[in-house]
Amino acid sequence: MAGAQYTLNRLVLMIPTFLLVMIIIFLLVRLLPGDPAIAIAGDKASDADIAAIRDKLGLNAPLWTQFWLFLTNTLQGDLGRSILMRAPVLDVVLARLPTTIFLAVYAITLSILIAGPLAFIAALNRGKWQDNLIRAVFQVGLSMPVFYIGLILLTFLAAQLRLFPVGGYGDTFADRLYHLFLPSVTVALYTSAILMRNLRAAIIEVLDAEYVQFARAKGLPPRLILGRHVLKNALISTITLLGLSIGQLMSGTLVTETVFAVPGVGRLMLEAIFARDYPLIQGLTLTFALLVSLVFLMTDLFQSWLDPRMRLT
């Protein structure tokens, strides 16, 4: 019961946030100097095209009517037409989205595999050389821009040693895993640095918690304590942390897709920017926002399901 109530509250809270997100995206194109209809129609549009768009956006009507039109169109899946791709924005985005989601899930899996064990080793050897070494390496990793990591991997592993393809995107699942390995590692090295840092602190906190000290005092074998208490709690922190860093993950994929020429929505965003394809920029910005808020929602619900105390706040 309480769980259902929390879910409902959480969903209701999303409505004003969604409206504000829509207002921000709406205002983005209105910030443009000059006539937004010309911007949206593109440089090569005829006067009739521009007039049609002006009519569709209601540019002669007051601002709030324009917003209402924008909102209702969007809710009906009408995001306008892409100038660059000469197709509805929704179709263009949906065609490219699976690649980015594949890359993101791949990167998350790799970052758990990288950060998880290392965070455990660091936390269990707190203050010793293992801890210091792991933290120092990740500290350097955090200071590296994603495009730089990508470029180094691309140069040495793909171009010099020819272990991996320089670009492209496979057809079968196995082929995709192979093609997207370096891009995923690039994103994962960045997200795992964030994850490692927080996970190490979370594990240390659990290790110091009274119930773990009590389990130790009871004489439970260390393996059982680690498995039942520490690991379980660390898993909860991992999922929460990953959920909260979805924004960084998406920023990371955007840059990585550009470096490795992966045909996902991140690279599309840059193509749209250089082509001044404003309907596509709007559509993609909305897509990214929806992805992030969906992950935030799932993280919140997951947390409240595991930890009923969360529902009170």
Binding site: G247, L249, M250, S251, M269, S293
Partner: peptide, 16 residues
Amino acid sequence: DAIITFPFLVLVIAVV
């Protein structure tokens, strides 16, 4: 809530 819903880089490059 609305601003952190956008990935930081995405919103910044959209404004740019």
